[in-house]
Simulated assay, not measured.
Amino acid sequence: MTKNDKLDELSKALFGWVEEDEDNRSVMLIAGDEESVRNAYRGSRSNLVESLANAMLKDKKLRSMCARALALCERNKENDNDED
C-alpha cells in the first residue's frame, strides 16, 4: 500500500464517521511528508472553527503552531503581492 493509499483510506474512514452525524461531527485533516501536503475537511464550517478554537485553547503547542503557520502564510502572501 502506498502513502497516498493510506491517506485515502484514513480520509475515507474519517469522512464516513462525520457522515453518520453531520450536524454534530466534523474533521480536519492535514498531512504532509517530504513530497506533498494534503488537506481535507468535512463538516459544517462553524463546527470546524469551534473545534479548532477549543483544541487551541486546550493545547498550547497546537496554538503556537497555528499562530506560526498563520504568520508564515501572511509573510508569504505579502511577498507574493510585492511581485505584482
Rank of each mutant, 00 (worst) to 15 (best):
G16D: 15
A69F: 04
D21G: 07
D21V: 04
K3T: 08
R75F: 10
K6G: 01
E74F: 08
T2H: 06
A40S: 10
L62P: 09
D59Y: 02
L48Y: 00
E9Y: 10
K77V: 05
N24I: 03
Y41L: 09
D5Y: 05
A71D: 15
L10C: 03
M65Y: 14
A67G: 10
D21H: 12
N54S: 12
K60G: 03
R45W: 07
K77Y: 15
D23A: 14
V18C: 02
S11H: 02
F15N: 12
L48T: 01
N47I: 05
S64N: 07
I30A: 14
L72G: 11
I30E: 06
R75C: 02
V37A: 08
L52V: 14
K61Y: 07
D80E: 07
K12G: 04
S44N: 02
R63M: 12
E34Q: 15
K12N: 09
E78C: 00
T2V: 00
M56P: 04
A13Q: 14
K58A: 12
D5P: 00
R75N: 11
R68N: 11
K6P: 03
V37M: 07
K12T: 07
N54E: 10
M28Y: 03
D80N: 08
E20Y: 12
V27H: 12
V27T: 09
L7I: 11
N39F: 14
D59V: 04
D23G: 05
L14A: 08
M1A: 06
E83I: 15
N24F: 02
M56S: 14
R38M: 09
D82C: 11
E35K: 14
S36G: 05
L52F: 04
A40R: 10
A40L: 10
N4G: 06
L62K: 09
D59Q: 02
S11A: 09
E19A: 15
E83D: 13
K58N: 13
E50M: 15
G16V: 00
F15Q: 13
E50F: 04
L70M: 13
A67S: 15
F15D: 13
L48P: 01
M65V: 09
S51V: 02
E19K: 15
K61V: 05
D5V: 02
L52T: 03
K61R: 08
E22H: 01
F15E: 11
D82Q: 15
M65W: 08
S51N: 13
D80G: 04
V18M: 01
L70F: 11
L52R: 01
D21C: 02
E9N: 08
L48A: 09
N79W: 08
L52W: 01
V49Q: 07
D21A: 11
M1S: 06
S64T: 10
L70Q: 12
D23L: 15
N79S: 06
D80A: 14
A55Q: 01
E50L: 15
C73D: 10
L62I: 03
S36T: 08
E35M: 05
K60D: 08
F15K: 11
S44R: 01
G43R: 01
N76K: 12
D23W: 00
V37K: 04
R63F: 06
R63H: 10
A31E: 05
K60Q: 09
E9P: 00
K58I: 00
